[in-house]
Design a protein around this nucleic acid. Structure first.
Lengths: 205, 205
DNA sequence: TGACAATGTTACCGATCGGTACGTATACAT
DNA sequence: ATGTATACGTACCGATCGGTAACATTGTCA
């Protein structure tokens, strides 16, 4: 049975009372620091310091730093699919437009200084060991992304939907990485255009 | 004037003599460990232990761990362009075939268990700070890759060569990353096919 | 008022981090 | 044989790593 001390995040309880719990402050700070500077680069001391709490508080809510990192990624996962579903909902029944909307949004997000790419991807690079708690979350997220893209390629009527779905995934991962590698004016701004070209070339004639 | 204690790597001096220098052993071991497990994940103690040398030996040849990491990437850079130039040389005057050969090779390399992607890309993820010695090498390598791909897109007669060159770069980076994310059977095996589709769709009609 | 749960306080643990002061061994030229 | 320079090893440094023990303080609800 997995330990899950940190699943209740008090979505704000209607009343104006309820002082922000320590666990939430810790997770918020960890989210920001882990994402911007990397998980290995951040020590627990810096997290508790910036969160205005103490180390025992962290370890009362999270069994270890690795599990805190996994919690950060679970939160990231939630917000990731929110953004994805927004793009989908904006173009009901039109998977090609859904992809285009999602990729246009990614392309825009990459065009800011100090863009840091995808937290999932970055965590997988930091932890090659497949059994690491953070990596487990990351791999699940990517499997789900692949599944959705392939399904959308089917819905688009691609000749070879698995190939197109995977091609779109490659473009997306490429955008995350080159966004942080090149900064402003990098190749990631061309992701939506290239995806649309690839889709066009992959449909049944 | 930059310090460069470690530029002479004794390419093997013709004679069978010349015992392997400590600097070379250190760099070889660091290359392997940094690439496979990540730079931040490896301490200098483990490097010197595996190299069969001692810590002062490391610091006589390399001014710091960060500079050792940069040296590792400079070596990686050399071998990277060797592989690239091999694909180019195999198809003189045919940039489309050159790209296809290079990407087919990448696609194959990704299809092994525990594939670790591109050392340059991984280092940039580990070190978001643009002034880090390792990141400097990594960014230069990627700029050069972008330059070459765009030039090849011009040579291929693309309608919008910058967009095609950038699209190819996105696919390549996507292959590096998803190769290590998905392992066997992942999307990276489809990189050459998708690149060829994208090229086809990007040529002047 | 009393009891409980959550948080804070202080101090500490062993391990590992990157890095260095300083003495020793080897090779070669004279 | 002796000087000299280069290469290497032993032993250590302070700082930080992730994590914990023991106890004091607080707010909430009954």
């Amino acid at each position: 049975m997995p330990t899950d001390k940190n699943i209740e995040l008090t979505i704000s309880d209607g009343h104006e009372s309820a002082p922000p719990k320590a666990a939430k402050k810790i997770l918020d700070v960890a989210y920001d620091l882990f994402y911007r500077r990397g998980i290995r680069a951040i020590g627990v001391d810096e997290i508790v310091k910036r969160a205005g709490v103490t180390k025992p508080s962290l370890y009362r809510s999270f069994p270890s730093k690795d599990e805190l990192a996994a919690s950060y990624l679970r939160q990231y996962d939630l917000e990731y699919w929110e953004r994805f579903d927004e793009a989908v909902a904006a173009h009901p029944g039109d998977p090609r437009a859904q992809i285009k909307a999602f990729l246009t949004r990614i392309g825009k997000r990459t065009q800011v200084a100090d863009y840091r790419g995808c937290g999932m991807t970055n965590a997988a690079v930091e932890y090659p060991d497949h059994s690491h708690p953070a990596r487990v979350v990351s791999e699940a997220n990517k499997q789900e992304l692949r599944r959705r893209l392939r399904a959308m390629a089917v819905a688009m009527g691609a000749q070879d939907p698995d190939t197109l779905g995977d091609g779109l995934l490659l473009l997306i991962e490429g955008a995350y990485i080159s966004g942080q590698l090149f900064g402003l004016g990098g190749p990631a701004q061309a992701v939506a255009r290239n995806a649309d070209l690839l889709i066009e070339a992959s449909l049944k004639k």
